[in-house]
Every structure is written in structure tokens, then in C-alpha cells.
Amino acid sequence: MNESNRKRGVLSPCAACKLLRRRCAQDCVFAPYFPAEEPHKFANIHRVFGASNVSKMLQELPEHQREDAVSSMVYEANARVRDPVYGCVGAISSLQQQIDLLQTQLALAQAEVVHLRVRQNASYSSSNSHGGFYAASPSNSGSPPTTLPASSRGKAIYNMDMVFDQANMGYPIW
């Protein structure tokens, strides 16, 4: 409906033509991507890239790629308004730092699980070697042994192929 009314000249100009205060032509390159109901969408693009450059970019692209290009430009322009120096790169860098931090925390948690399971297995084997009685030793820190199910005895608990530098994390190497 929008397109048919646009051809008859009934609709208001697109957001781009409205901002630029010009008459919106029937073949306006901006009209399909910047409807009059979304003026904010074009405002940041115009501020960051300039209307002339956006028009040139859109005209050089095949029509099936224009919508993706507009959404990318909108995203980049909004990022540039928030962070004029780094734009999208700043957002990507921040997310990468969060991923690195979470991966480190995950590796620490996995190492702690391995450490606790090794202590549990040592405690289990020491209780079995003493005729079933529990003997306190520095290796089990006074914790009572827990019995492992028969199905988990003798299985590998954790894939130890993962290399983890614990010296830099303040954890002892066991």
C-alpha cells in the first residue's frame, strides 16, 4: 500500500527527504529503507556518513543487497554516535574482553572441579586401603570420604588435554 500511494504522490516524503527538506521523488533511493514513520533511522546515518555518500553507496549496490547495507549503516552510525572514536570496533572489543574473562573464569572453575575430584578419589582410595575406616590426612583436609558410584570408578573424570597456566591466576599447580 505504501508503494502504490507513493507512486500517486499521496504519502508524505520519506524520512531522508523530510530531514533534507526536499521533495521526495517517485524513484527516491532512500524511500524503501527510510520510511516517514522512522525519522531517527536516517538522522544518525546522515550525521555520520552524509546523505550524498549514503545515496552513492545505495545506488552502487544491487537492490537485493541494499536492505542489509542500510541496516549495517544504521548500526554503525548508532555506534559512532555513542562512541565517536571507536564505533562498532569499541563494542566488539568490549564483548571480546568479556568473552576472554568468562573463558578464564570457566577454566578456573573446571580446574577446581578436577582438583576436588582428585582429592575425592584420593580420599576414597585411602579409606579403602585402611579397611574401610576413615583416616584423617593432609590430603583430605579432614573431610569424610564420599563413595563414588561403581559406574564412575576407573573412568576419566576430565579431559586433561586443556592447557591452563595456573601460575598467573594465583592457584597452586597440582
Rank of each mutant, 00 (worst) to 15 (best):
V29K: 03
V29M: 06
F30T: 01
F30M: 00
F30L: 02
A31I: 01
Y33H: 06
F34N: 01
A36L: 05
E37M: 03
P39C: 08
H40G: 15
K41R: 13
K41Q: 10
F42E: 01
H46D: 15
R47E: 11
V48D: 02
G50M: 04
G50K: 04
S55R: 09
K56Q: 15
P62F: 11
P62A: 12
E63M: 12
H64T: 09
E67R: 12
E67M: 10
D68L: 14
A69E: 05
A69V: 05
A69Q: 04
V70D: 04
S71D: 07
S72H: 14
M73N: 02
M73T: 04
V74E: 12
V74K: 06
E76K: 13
E76M: 14
N78V: 00
A79M: 07
V81M: 06
P84K: 06
Y86T: 02
G87K: 02
G87I: 02
C88W: 08
C88Y: 10
C88M: 13
C88E: 12
V89N: 14
A91M: 10
S93I: 07
S94P: 03
L95Y: 07
Q96Y: 13
Q98E: 09
Q98P: 00
T104G: 00
Q105K: 09
Q105G: 07
L108S: 09
L108C: 12
Q110A: 11
Q110K: 11
A111E: 03
E112I: 11
V114A: 14
H115S: 11
H115P: 04
H115F: 11
H115M: 10
V118M: 14
R119A: 11
N121L: 15
N121K: 14
A122V: 15
S123A: 14
S123M: 09
Y124M: 12
Y124E: 13
S126G: 10
S126F: 11
S127H: 15
N128T: 06
S129N: 05
S129C: 02
S129R: 04
F133P: 09
F133T: 15
A136P: 13
A136C: 14
S137D: 12
P138Y: 05
P138F: 05
P138D: 04
P138S: 03
S139L: 15
S139R: 15
N140T: 03
S143C: 05
T146Y: 10
T147N: 04
T147L: 05
L148S: 11
P149Y: 02
P149T: 03
A150M: 08
S152W: 08
Y158K: 01
Y158R: 01
N159A: 01
N159V: 00
N159Y: 01
D161T: 12
M162R: 13
V163D: 15
G170M: 09
G170N: 10
Y171S: 09
Y171A: 11
P172H: 14
